[in-house]
Write a protein that binds this DNA or RNA. Sequence first.
DNA 1: GATGAATGAGTGTTCATTCAT
DNA 2: TATGAATGAACACTCATTCAT
Lengths: 174, 174, 174, 174
Amino acid sequence: MRILDAALMLIADHGVGGTSLQMIADAVGVTKAAVYHQFKTKEEIVIALTERELGRLDDALEAAEAEKSRTKAREVLLTRVIDMAIERRRAAATLQSDPVIVRLLAEHEPFQAYLTRLYGVLLGDASDENRVSAAMLSGAIGTAVVHPLVADVDDDELRTQLLILTRRLLALPE
Amino acid sequence: MRILDAALMLIADHGVGGTSLQMIADAVGVTKAAVYHQFKTKEEIVIALTERELGRLDDALEAAEAEKSRTKAREVLLTRVIDMAIERRRAAATLQSDPVIVRLLAEHEPFQAYLTRLYGVLLGDASDENRVSAAMLSGAIGTAVVHPLVADVDDDELRTQLLILTRRLLALPE
Amino acid sequence: MRILDAALMLIADHGVGGTSLQMIADAVGVTKAAVYHQFKTKEEIVIALTERELGRLDDALEAAEAEKSRTKAREVLLTRVIDMAIERRRAAATLQSDPVIVRLLAEHEPFQAYLTRLYGVLLGDASDENRVSAAMLSGAIGTAVVHPLVADVDDDELRTQLLILTRRLLALPE
Amino acid sequence: MRILDAALMLIADHGVGGTSLQMIADAVGVTKAAVYHQFKTKEEIVIALTERELGRLDDALEAAEAEKSRTKAREVLLTRVIDMAIERRRAAATLQSDPVIVRLLAEHEPFQAYLTRLYGVLLGDASDENRVSAAMLSGAIGTAVVHPLVADVDDDELRTQLLILTRRLLALPE
DNA sequence: GATGAATGAGTGTTCATTCAT
DNA sequence: TATGAATGAACACTCATTCAT
């Protein structure tokens, strides 16, 4: 959907609060009213957007949940998360840290459920160490891919390093 | 300054774009015009705010730069960063990821210089591995302290774990 | 357009700087936002307004430019200018002397071109005498029609006198 | 008074409505409050300003009123008006046409009286022709000196031409 | 004399949203 | 499906003005 594409890019650049429906409509090349024809409110756009991005993990999440070994499950999921973050470098950080989206993730029921599943796989057991390392990972990957320090690291190298460092952080065998 | 305190909390909750001057003025208990008497624009508030928070690292940064050993320097700085992030759990993430502040950090000259110093200590050498691990750390700490997964981990335990995991990520001796 | 009508009257009374969009919207009986739907900025209103008033000279200007005799051309144009000034006594002066409009006339390209045509006809040749008399005329007519001294001179008499005096000023045969 | 000087120049450029006390204070290099120490309101500044400029005609007005011959009286006054307009080219037009000042001249008692004296001399008798020609003159001189058409006519030549044209308009012997 | 801090009302402009067509 | 016109509320910011110091 072109509206969601445009909205995602704009939100990545200006945040949800800094992105107006006018900007989205202009980017798509239609009128505001046309946007409203497809989404009843601005929030609905943000939800659809987040749903779509989160949905990209569906396959990996299901595969991970099907794994018997927790360690293997984590690996499957993390690899996919890293791939996704690299594919969509610009959007990755914002979606995880924009206050509006954060609030949405915390309050919108379906997201809650999805995140619970996600954390379930990510966590292994719920020891403090695991909880903290999972929390670190959550932000680290999204933030890392857009960080100025890695602006000129190419995608493949970045992917390799992220995998290594992630395993190290989780004390997985390298 | 009470204005900056109020602004920081509001921005942590709603992002820069979601925080209006009216909200700030109301939180302080004065009129919008009174806020404008002290800051000529909204951006000026955000700059002052960011400057103040960043300034809390001054001591540690100077101490780190005075260290001969790069490894020791990194430790000094990281310890302080972790302490700060825990002290100001709510604000930590937003300040690092709000698009408005990110843009500010990238475009406002004095911030550029400060960040260069910061990364200089954090990086050690500029190998790809180091660059990626430093980038991960930048976001990881800020994000971790506000992550729902660690909401009920107490400050001391969180601090201990963050130190351990950070050393692990950077392959420092534990 | 009702917005332009209202704006013209208000600007005639209070000047551009003293006329707010709220005043214009109130006069038309719509909201400010409705005004903004048709004009993107206040300046755009002022431009449209000035364009429209200036446009009333189009016919006379074209007719004048088609004349072979310079003297005849001036007469055609001046007669129309006087008629217009009398028709729209209130607005005439402000449009020629409000600093905002003056700046607009000087900086907005299309106005520049139009005024050059206008002065081309008005000037005849570019002797100093002609330049000064044309400059005097420009303001004199607009100012005269709203001057308190002539407040109780009726339109027809005023028109007759303006024609006589204008010819005298330009040393045209009466 | 430096405040009045600054205010006059600013008003000439932006009109009364477009000139704020902040602008005036900035131009003088003091605070708004300091301006308020000398003038209780903005209107008071405009009044003082207009009074001061109008006052420059005092000598000529008195001399003119002392003349027995009406014709001579007009000449004395007009010569002075022309001199003043040329001396203060920029301010001349605004003071005569800014709607705020126009309203002030019409409503502020002392100005009414002064203008009545001025018109008394200017008019000669109150025939329609005289009234219209005096009205034209009022605006013509002020407007002419700032008109783009005469921007590169030097002061002396402009003065000469204005005198000639003025006499012609009033049917005085050249 | 001059300042800094404050205010309430206003500025131009944009917001998300609605609705008749 | 899409539009254009409209709205009320909010936005960042400036206004003229006051007052304690």
